[in-house]
Design a protein around this nucleic acid. Structure first.
Lengths: 203, 203
DNA sequence: ATGCATTTTAAATGGTTGTTTAAATTATTC
DNA sequence: GAATAATTTAAACAACCATTTAAAATGCAT
């Protein structure tokens, strides 16, 4: 039993994920992946049949990674304000940990919208969360502004993610160091929390 | 004088812009550009020396296209609420007219942040607008929440642009037709206007 | 019309792409 | 430990890449 040595298939997949996230599908070559995984060039096709097949498998994992934590939070038994706050914190952490993830997803779907939606599981899960119920109740008793999930979710997602999507532009634009940018990002996060809660929660 | 026939150089540049916007630098081949321009493959290099040089020239134009209208509005002699509203409407129009523009800019800068900032003219122009003055005055007399341009601008930009950046995901996620999406986009635009104004303008 | 510069063309350049092959190596089974 | 299966390897594949070449076509001043 070799517990230390990783399986070649996994090594390739993880290496490919790193390279795809950084360079995108078009910018990544089979040789890039082999080099990153420190494996022979032919092994990518031995295990995954093609670069495209490998990509689709990884893309599915990445989409899952992106949506699952959000679904979990939407289902939590906490009040709406706390939930929005937690979603913002969660997205913020994700963007710090994996800054390439969102731009990668948006970009790949933008280039070829049709091929990248193999199943809709996450999407149905999203609609059938406790949050949807909370929202309906809040709107009914007048404590929440009448909005749908599909209007609230983008507000949360975009305001957090855009901080990091536009990081390089923002740093150049306002001539910030990495440290100064981090201070801005934290401040912006708090603005976003308050702005969204103020707007959604009435009174 | 041939006024109808376009100059080959311009034809190539315009064709290249269309292809670059749709497929990005990595996804675009010289042959794609030649085919789109309906010109011989060698002419791209005859007029622009290389695919890279052509790209940089186009990218500079696109960045200018993106920032100039914003700068113009920031300098208008109208009150803050109207100004924010107009910026949102302007961004909204731009995203409808050229849905590929923002994802293209963000993505290309993300891939190679350093090469794509040849000059900082637009950035300095941005800071030295009438809006900066309005902001300082409003904060001083308590009518505006104490925020900087670099915090307000992302709120406006991201909330509008993300509607279209995530268009395909959103349509799939909530199973919308093109028409239903347009209705959602309009509604979302109004939400964003009110949310940002409510947050920035006190009382 | 002639001579010269500009523009356009087809063809070829050397290099890289994703993928395949067939041999070599390693692991597993009996 | 021999036979068989699974894995890894170096090399080669045709297709395509950005770019260059040198000849052909065109425009234009004289």
């Amino acid at each position: 039993m070799k517990c230390i040595a990783e399986k070649s298939e996994d090594k390739i997949k993880e290496a490919a994920k790193r390279v795809f996230l950084k360079k995108g599908f078009d910018g990544t070559t089979s040789r890039d992946i082999a080099r990153e995984a420190d494996m022979n060039i032919a092994l990518t096709n031995y295990y995954f049949r093609s670069k495209e097949k490998l990509f689709l498998e990884i893309f599915r994992d990445i989409l899952s990674e992106y949506f699952q934590s959000t679904i979990d939070i939407l289902n939590k038994k906490i009040d709406v304000k706390a939930k929005i706050s937690e979603m913002i914190e969660n997205d913020f952490k994700m963007m710090k940990k994996e800054p390439d993830l969102v731009i990668f997803i948006v970009n790949e779907i933008h280039k070829e919208p049709e091929r990248l939606f193999p199943d809709m599981t996450f999407f149905h899960q999203m609609r059938n969360t406790y949050f949807t119920q909370q929202l309906e109740e809040g709107v009914a008793n007048g404590t929440l502004r009448p909005m749908h999930l599909e209007s609230i979710l983008p507000l949360i997602k975009c305001n957090v993610e855009f901080i990091f999507l536009g990081k390089h532009i923002h740093k150049k634009l306002f001539n910030l160091t990495e440290e100064e940018f981090n201070v801005h990002a934290e401040a912006q996060k708090e603005h976003v929390k308050e702005m969204i809660c103020n707007y959604l929660v009435i009174g």
